[in-house]
């Protein structure tokens, strides 16, 4: 029994090995991209929609609304990153009902990779909004807070990775254990619970990423507000 699909070797060619995590990730990617291509191949701009187009429009619109609620910004800037995080994790988890499939999110390497992406994306979005002055927030309220801020960034990234990995891996292992103890009915219920947990984890991961990004961009807004207030004060004083 494999705790993580990293240890499941699908293909070995000399020093290069294709493990289960990468393989199933590709499967998920292929499925998502192919489905997207199929659905968006003939999009209707009229009021009558196909069911699949309606589904993806509901998904995309829902994600945009969530992003708009959290960031109060134009959601399209973050949609690709946050939406892909959510959809990838959600599809990876939901496919766990397919026999023989191992969710790549059950691999710590995958969750770490996703958390790393968030870890890098947050300052990138911050810098793209504010420039290098983004880094000022690490020395606030005082320069002595710099190590703690950095540790906070790293720890929250680590927490994201561990949280997702733990939830999915535990779900898979529990299902496997239950199959040996009580092979009838009970594993099905746990599987259903696992699907729910998988969706919730996808939502949590994406929302957390968006919250971090929003926090990074909110710094600038605070400064803008402060700037506007000082201008007002100047006008009043002057």
């Amino acid at each position: 029994m494999h705790i993580t699909p990293d240890t499941l070797i699908i293909f070995q060619w000399g020093p290069v090995s294709l493990n289960g995590t990468i393989f199933f990730t590709w499967c998920v990617m292929a499925l998502m991209v192919f489905s997207s291509w199929l659905i968006t191949r003939k999009l209707s701009t009229e009021t009558h929609l196909s069911r699949w187009q309606n589904l993806v429009e509901v998904l995309v619109t829902g994600i945009r609304d969530e992003i708009r609620d959290i960031s109060s910004h134009d959601p399209d800037k973050y949609l690709s990153f946050v939406g892909t995080l959510f959809l990838f994790i959600a599809v990876s988890n939901l496919l766990s009902i397919v026999p023989g499939y191992k969710p790549p999110t059950g691999s710590f390497s995958t969750t770490a990779a996703l958390a790393l992406c968030v870890f890098v994306a947050v300052p990138l979005y911050g810098i793209s909004q504010k420039g290098l002055s983004y880094f000022k927030q690490y020395i606030e309220p005082s320069v002595f807070m710099l190590p703690f801020n950095i540790i906070g960034e790293i720890s929250r990234t680590f927490a994201m990775a561990v949280r997702l990995f733990g939830n999915i891996m535990s779900g898979t292992i529990i299902a496997a254990i239950l199959l040996t103890i009580a092979p009838l009915i009970f594993p099905v219920l746990m599987q259903i619970l696992g699907l729910l947990i998988g969706l919730i984890q996808a939502y949590i991961f994406a929302i957390l990423a968006m919250v971090y990004i929003a926090a990074a961009t909110r710094v600038q807004r605070k400064e803008e507000e402060t700037g506007r207030q000082s201008e007002k004060g100047d006008l009043l004083n002057g």
């Binding site: 990730t25 998502m32 968006t40 701009t45 993806v56 399209d76 990779a113």
Partner: peptide, 23 residues
């Protein structure tokens, strides 16, 4: 996986978000 994710971001932007938002 990082590379895979970035590729997926690009592909979904190309085949999903872009066309859907345009529509």
């Amino acid at each position: 996986q990082v590379i895979n994710f970035l590729v997926l971001v690009y592909l979904l932007k190309r085949f999903l978000y872009g066309p859907i938002i345009r529509a």
